[in-house]
């Protein structure tokens, strides 16, 4: 006898992790691009992150494997480059800045054959910063608006 069960999908995984951080901003959009193309574009950090992340001006990939990356990210208004450790799976990506200064989560699942449901979360995983949630949420909302406009472009 087989009981009905539910598998963990990348977007649920993202929302669950984000729930740990009181200042996390979380958003979700449907992109008019098939999953494989959308995910490949999103994971091309050097060429594409600054095309949708409103805070990022430049990304350099220092190391890259199929499942990990080390990035150096330059952000608007921050004179210091920020190193990130990245773990990558199909449809799920976690980017952690050194010193727990910043956390970015990206998740995607196919939405039919031609579209992609994408979820994005950002947080400052330090205690006592719950009041910054509205600001972080505005950043995520802005990122997702830019992503919908620019997905697939270089």
């Amino acid at each position: 006898m087989t009981w009905p069960t539910v598998e963990l999908d990348p977007i649920t995984r993202l929302r669950a992790i984000a729930a740990a951080f009181p200042n996390a901003g979380v958003g979700e959009v449907v992109l008019d691009v098939p999953f494989d193309r959308a995910w490949a574009w999103l994971m091309d950090f050097e060429r594409t992150t600054s095309r949708f992340d409103t805070m990022v001006t430049n990304v350099r990939v220092r190391q890259r494997t199929d499942t990990t990356a080390k990035l150096v990210v330059r952000q608007r208004g921050n004179p210091f480059p920020m190193p990130f450790d990245v773990s990558i799976e199909p449809g799920f990506c976690m980017m952690r800045a050194s010193g727990r200064l910043f956390l970015v989560l990206m998740a995607a699942v196919p939405e039919g054959d031609d579209r992609t449901r994408y979820a994005h979360a950002e947080a400052i995983p330090l205690p006592g910063l719950g009041r910054t949630r509205a600001r972080v949420q505005r950043m995520v909302d802005a990122d997702l608006r830019r992503l919908r406009r620019n997905i697939g472009t270089y």
Binding site: V6, L8, R13, I17, A20, M94, R96, P125, P127
Partner: peptide, 19 residues
């Protein structure tokens, strides 16, 4: 608040919760 540990916990608990 270690994000990687939280992720591991989510994945560990998901079969139980999914069932």
């Amino acid at each position: 608040g270690d994000a990687r540990a939280i992720d591991a916990l989510v994945r560990e608990l998901s079969p139980l919760i999914g069932r």
